[in-house]
Design a binder for these strands. Structure first.
Lengths: 257, 257
DNA sequence: CGCAATATTGACCATCATCAATTGGCGTGG
DNA sequence: CCACGCCAATTGATGATGGTCAATATTGCG
């Protein structure tokens, strides 16, 4: 996830090797038949590259395609008129952060990237054809939407009822499991390409306070976080600090192929 | 919505007249064919009544049926180990607050009621048969899930980045539009059967602070709120106070039949 | 080597939580 | 019909978590 070969900003239009990420992702939440897998690989997609600070889509857009993260790291967010920002979710390769655009005309949030990221755009029409030919995939996408919503709910609990230490510890726990789920967290270490200010906007805190709490967690030898790289030192203790319960991730604890 | 005829706790098993609420709700977010409407009305459902404080389902349950609010007022919530509570959403008649159980085995939150409420339970098997026979309904349910998630996102912004006055004003704006959408807010007045403590748990505040902010909003003559009844006095001003933008509700501004 | 973005620290302050009464509304039993 | 009791609303006093502002270090990188 952390490195990829092409981020020159060029726009290709064909079969990037990373397209298997989508299969991998869906397979992590449901079973797919060979035919469904092939159909996913055959989806037409236009690939584009982005760098830190660019948006894949913006609030207010009326997209005619869905975007798929092939490589990199993206996030959904929304701005208030005066500039306050709330980050709604983080997305790793294989995710479809605006799947909702299939059914909801105008986008109610933006999708940006935190690092050089490659995204593929799949026409809505192709998605509709696909789900018509393969009802199993329709269920897979619906299931994905439902898990997405479950994660929103857990974040709401954090924003509404957890204190700063719990929130930050909780986010770290969640990201560890999500990266583990796609085989990207060997030795309880993973790359988290976000700044402390980003974390602040995700958790409803100020950057300054995030910094202070991180110092605490480091002092307590629960984690290490530098160079965009996080290492969990004491997993049990960290979960306790976060009041973390993994069930909401609905992971089908099976290692991605 | 505020009154209903039977809340003796009896369990019927047949065709309550309120079952049309489901049709009404789905029709408010998509178009249905006559066949689809009839199929919805023919769904088998077991009706049960609940009173304030009772739960329809609990976190950890593995339901084999979906619940449908026929009459009354329900909410989804989750508790932290030490008793802190976060309310995740409010639900009016026609809503299916645990639709997700169709695809996600174990429930990650509870559903409770705020007032005498009648709910119908529809076996998952019936739902699956239904969506198999009527793919249009499958899309309708998916769309419902997506709108649900859109509301979660808006609440996340409130919890993370709005101050107490904005949050409360925003909730009032949202509920007005939702009640209006089902024809239950004549004269910008509607019944909101929640206590100030409930509002606090929905917005991540303390009951005391909710009270103080409500006093402010009343002093400013923006609203009236007593006896579980809210009246909006100055709609434009209230929206401004809340930084409210209705788009996220994705309402198809058409009056329910 | 020097910029520019992040991270870190300190000082001060505001919003909102907590704790503790007190008041008010309303249903129920006598 | 009225008193009691309970739940919710209201108010006051006090304090803590976390925000804001402003420097000062670091670190990554061209």
């Amino acid at each position: 996830m952390q490195q990829h070969t092409n981020h020159l900003g060029l726009s290709h239009t064909d079969r990037p090797p990373e397209r298997h990420r989508l299969v991998q992702k869906l397979q992590s939440i449901t079973d797919l038949t060979a035919g469904e897998r092939q159909a996913l690989l055959d989806l037409p997609m236009a690939v584009r590259s982005y760098t830190k600070g660019e948006d894949l889509v913006r609030e207010g857009d009326v997209p005619s395609e869905c975007c798929l993260i092939l490589d990199g790291f993206a996030f959904r967010y929304k701005l208030l008129p005066d500039g306050r920002r709330q980050i709604l979710s983080f997305h790793t390769p294989g995710d479809l952060p605006d799947l909702q655009s299939l059914h909801i005309q105008t986008l109610d949030h933006s999708v940006g990237v935190m690092m050089p990221t490659m995204a593929a755009f799949i026409p809505h029409k192709s998605m509709r054809d696909l789900t018509e030919r393969f009802p199993g995939l329709l269920h897979a996408f619906w299931r994905d939407t439902l898990i997405d919503a479950a994660i929103f709910r857990e974040w709401m609990i954090g924003l509404g009822r957890r204190d700063a230490h719990e929130r930050i510890a909780h986010l770290i726990c969640e990201m560890l499991l999500r990266f583990r789920g796609v085989g990207l967290a060997p030795d309880d270490t993973f790359k988290m390409p976000v700044t402390q200010a980003d974390v602040a906007d995700a958790l409803g805190l100020s950057n300054v306070h995030v910094n202070r709490v991180l110092m605490d967690l480091r002092r307590e030898r629960l984690i290490t976080w530098s160079n965009l790289t996080i290492t969990i030192l004491r997993w049990e203790e960290l979960q306790k600090r976060a009041l973390f319960e993994a069930n909401y991730l609905h992971q089908v604890s099976k290692v991605a192929a």
